[in-house]
């Protein structure tokens, strides 16, 4: 009794206390504070055009962060996410070029992307959930295999000759004067939000993350759920890869180098609790926004790109420490 009691947190009131509200609002407040701080140094940060820019940049990262969240929720990791983006970018581009580079070839590109990402996700999921290999090492190994494919099939060079409409529609296009990538990220957010809230799959992800053994004992088929989580993660990464490819207008073997880290950082900053089955896509989106605001600000005040990398690492550690407090039992 007493040992258990020790592991339980302080009793909470069933209503929201001011502390809970403050805790929930922590990240939005941080985002505003960072914006204002950069705005003091460089007024352009606070312009409407830059806000639009931030939203646009954040929408790409948000998709990757949401992808990573799917597996983080289950106590997993996907270190192969970044290189999956590279491979999908290259392979989808090659498919489009091979199919003539017309508008219709976009469909083949999407098909190739889905196929490749699906295969990577399936392989990850089967190795992790089916055979039971540590997710970290599995996806680390997978990352290097995927990287090898990405760099060899492209010969290391960008794939050019993509359909013009790809960039025109999916990168520069807009609807109701809101850029297409933002719409797509918002759509993904809504869909995943519903998946987590209103499907058995979503509920199972949380339960597995909170306690895998309890999930098994409660009759949840954990293997298919986990496999699906990794497949979903890879497919979302592929979607993001297509959007990034549309933005650059070519298939880039180096597209995803830093994305794994950024996606994990965004999710963790947002508060997706590693190994605790807490958090959600909302957290991932906020985290992505925070990371983007920070890097956008650093770009505008002309901080070296390498220093930004240092900041990213520091932010991960700081947010781990900050989020730890409320997780403490």
């Amino acid at each position: 009794m007493s040992m258990e009691a020790k592991t339980q947190p302080m009793a909470q009131l069933s209503g929201l206390s001011p502390r809970d509200v403050l805790r929930a609002a922590r990240l939005p407040i941080a985002i505003v504070v960072v914006l204002i701080l950069f705005g003091l140094v460089e007024p352009r940060v606070l312009s409407l055009g830059n806000f639009r820019n931030i939203a646009l940049q954040a929408s790409y990262l948000a998709i990757f962060a949401m992808a990573q969240t799917m597996v983080l929720l289950t106590r997993g990791f996907d270190l192969s996410l970044g290189y999956t983006v590279s491979l999908v970018s290259v392979a989808a581009s090659m498919a489009m070029v091979a199919m003539g580079g017309g508008d219709a070839s976009i469909l083949y590109g999407v098909g190739a992307a889905a196929l490749i990402a699906g295969a990577i996700g399936l392989a990850n999921g089967v190795l992790i959930a089916g055979i039971g290999i540590n997710p970290l090492v599995t996806t680390l190994g997978m990352a290097n295999m995927v990287l090898a494919f990405a760099s060899t099939i492209s010969g290391g060079f960008p794939v050019t000759g993509l359909p013009k409409s790809l960039t025109a529609e999916f990168a520069q296009g807009s609807l109701l004067s809101i850029p297409m990538p933002i719409w797509i990220a918002a759509l993904v957010f809504v869909l995943l939000f519903l998946v987590l809230k209103a499907t058995r799959f979503g509920r199972s992800l949380y339960i597995i993350g909170a306690n895998p053994r309890a999930a098994v004992a409660a009759g949840i088929r954990t293997v298919p759920v986990l496999v699906l989580a990794y497949v979903l993660c890879a497919l979302l990464a592929a979607l993001g890869a297509l959007l990034l490819t549309a933005r650059t207008g070519s298939g880039e073997p180096n597209l995803g180098g830093n994305l794994t880290l950024e996606a994990i950082a965004a999710a963790v900053v947002g508060g997706v609790r590693l190994a605790r089955g807490e958090g959600g896509v909302g957290a991932a989106v906020l985290g992505a926004l925070f990371v983007t605001v920070l890097s956008n600000g650093m770009n505008l005040v002309q901080i070296d790109g390498y220093l930004q990398q240092i900041c990213l690492g520091v932010i991960i550690i700081v947010s781990l420490i900050v989020n730890r407090d409320e997780a403490r039992r």
Binding site: F77, V268, L274, I310, L312, G313, V314, I317, I321
Partner: peptide
């Protein structure tokens, strides 16, 4: 970081990797 805050060693060293690479490249 790992022992005082009981953080995940994986996350800590991943972040450390980013920091060190950034410093070396900078």
């Amino acid at each position: 970081l790992v022992s005082a805050f009981s953080l995940s060693p994986f996350m800590v060293t991943l972040a450390m990797m980013s920091v060190l690479m950034g410093i070396a490249l900078y």
